[in-house]
Amino acid sequence: MSAAVTTAPVTTGRAPNNRRPRRSGRFVASTSVLYAILVVIAIVYIFPFLIDVATSFKTDAEAASDPLSLIPQTWTTAAYERLFLNSDFPTWFANSAVVTVFVTAGRVFLASLAGYALARLDFRGRNVIFAGLVAVMSVPLVVLLIPKFLVINQLGIYDSYAGMIIPLLVDAAGVFIMKNFFESIPASVEEQARIDGAGTFRIFWSVVLPMARPALITIVILSFQGSWNELSHFIVSTQSPELTTLTKGVASLASGQLSQGTQYPLKLAAAAIMTVPVAVMFFIFQRRIMNASEGAVKE
């Protein structure tokens, strides 16, 4: 990785220099240098994940003796069997799934509701709310670790699904994204519906929301990824094993059992499985993710 950084000035400097004199020969050379650099960096970025998957099918001994090879000498699914048949892993997975589904659904609904109000509805206090939202966005999450526990505890929802889900239901950034999007929709659409006598919620729900699909998908992606990968909130909001999520469970697997043998295939299998849902999400919406930021900035 560090090699990639140090080569940066050299290559960017060289490529354009080659442009002018004798294009064909040196141009080809500089292009192949560019590809070579890209391929090397891509390998550095992808290889760890390949090692992860490959090692999860190895035996403990082979994982230790040959950590680099991508093809196990003796294939074994022992790690997966242990995870699914002899551990709490299925519970962790189910908890993560439940939390993610509720949080994603909640965030999509509440963020678009609030975003619409802030973008379109004219009411006293709107500017104050918006200023408050911006202020809230700047609070570092880590500062909230202890305080969130205090409130969850006071409300009596510590160690429950409610305590895991409700605090995550709103995310200020999502509201922000939805607000920006609604502002880009022409107001004439709503005016028409209003003349037809539709109420505010009706207009929001059946006229504006269907038009907001691209932004909604962005929120779905962000919420899904955010809640599936969330760790610290679950550390401070739960303690019982039945409510352990994947992140918390795998973290305990990683830290707690370091002393009793390494069990790397087991841990890496767990890490691989917990990556699958976000990876699937990523590849489904890949186009949109890659273009999301472009669209956002352009507007």
Partner: peptide
């Protein structure tokens, strides 16, 4: 390839 590590959880990456 360059973006993929960003979507995975910090727990999974730490284990790796």
């Amino acid at each position: 390839a360059f973006y993929f590590p960003s979507v995975t959880s910090s727990v999974a990456i730490t284990v790796l």
